[in-house]
Amino acid sequence: MSHARTQKLTRIILKAATVVILLLLLLSEILFSSITLFFKSMITVIFTYPYGVIYNNLMFFLFGLRGKIGGLTLTILVAAVSLLLAFIAGIIFGLMRNSRRWWLSYPAIGYIELVRSVPLILVIFWFCFFPPGLSETLKSVGRVYYGIFALIAFTGAYIAEIVRAGILSVSKGQMEASRSSGLTHTQAMIYIILPQALKNMIPSLVNQFVSLIKDTSLLWFVGVMEFTSTIFATSNREVNTTVTMGLYFFAAVVYFLVCYPLTASSRKLEKKLGVGER
């Protein structure tokens, strides 16, 4: 390469480098100033926030209106009851799904696929609006019960898939070994396959419980007074947007404090099970 060409190239590179550096400086200036602005406003918010709003309504958030169950208590209660019943439904449908008899497996497949492909709100709307419109007796049942039924129907389908995967995760040799020692299919399922499958399923079930706790917030759409609704109702009374922001952040933190320990423990369990089994 000739000397002149090298010089020309160097000059071009130098020019380009200057432009790039200037651009980077500008960009970092913008970035830096916006970040400082953001933190400044955040600090202002933290120091000037009227924490009284949260403190005064704390009982409302945790227990709901006086004389009724509501707030965070209702959220956890609904989630726990739904999980328990959905677990039973899930085992039944999971076993049906695994069955080799088509008249057992087809309805299970239909139910699972249908529920898994629609949003939860749709299921909640089906349960909360359709039956009460049919007759006076059904109208008198509280919204929250329909909501629980919707959550069971929704979560049951997901748990059925977990159960199915759990059963499939137990090696085929276990079934063969128990069948060849004379146990019937049902006996082998109860004593050999399900205990092992259940152990493998625990982490997924805990995760499902976390989803369920988060999903109970959707009962806000049908006016059940659970945690999200209490927050929403309080923030609706406030004009100040700073207060609103704090309320929703508080709600997020509370949900996080409830859910994260469960998530963490399920992950720990998963690791333990992964190492324990081969």
Binding site: E176, A177, S178, S180, S181, G182, L183, T184, Q196, K199
Partner: peptide, 29 residues
Amino acid sequence: NELRAEIGMVFQQFNLYPHMSVLKNITLA
């Protein structure tokens, strides 16, 4: 099942039940 009770089988991969003690593995059937 009646017939299988009269035939014992041993597999290449053992196929022991991992969630039960040795003795329970044997006494279950």
